[in-house]
Amino acid sequence: MSAVTATTINAAGMEFRELNDRIAQNAEKDLVLRDVLGQRFLAAGRKSGGLEIHGVPGNALGAYLNGAEITVRGNAQDATGDTMNAGRVIIHGSSGDATGYAMRGGEIYIKGRVGHRAGIHMKAYKTNIPHLVVGGGAGSFLGEYQAGGVILLLGLGCENEFPVGYYCGTGMHGGKIYIRTAHPPKGLPPHVRFRPADGEDSAVIRPLVKRWCALFGVPEDDIYTQPFQVLEPDTEGADVQHYTANR
């Protein structure tokens, strides 16, 4: 996004609805928002036009995002990219709980950490494959109910332990979680398998690492100091009959 052609909106003291009206009125344009302070739902469903946010956007930033690119020069709050379909969200800080909830396409790159329930219920269909790349660690329930898509957790700064809280991948039945760590997870659910990344996995991991490093100015060599592991659903034994037909 070129700062020269971008339109600037000063968001100080503006209610979310008014601010979103302004953003919607500039559907095609590149926008810079200044002094953002907790306004929710920014750029919900936005198709095109870049958006650079200075300050802290509120919950549900880029919900249902449909192709636009959002850059946050700071932290984001909860539910970033909720049910997003296409586009890109780049956060130069950390992001809160439920980041990437039910994402079904597009990419989210986060420099720092994510809260609980990140990437929960992500899904994929044909070429629509969502990617969530996180620089730091994650809270509990990462990838819970994951049905598709890719979560890559670099765990920078968490090298001494498994970089995810409790219940990682609970209910996972599709997709993959890649984690840069030397430690096995604690209390993994029985239907989730943990194994070292292989060549095929590297083909997915490497371009994402490259992209993340380029976005946040981190040398790639700093990333490959630790091995990558994979969490994926274990389909064997998944056919357990939980229900029996009744009248």
């Binding site: 439920a98 909830y101 079904r104 219920h121 109910y145 039945h173």
Partner: peptide
């Protein structure tokens, strides 16, 4: 195609909305 998930995968709607 309508649900936008691959063929043959389970479609699970969890009991709560997790947000």
């Amino acid at each position: 195609r309508t649900r936008m998930i691959p063929e043959g995968t389970d479609a699970i709607s969890p009991a709560p909305h997790h947000d």
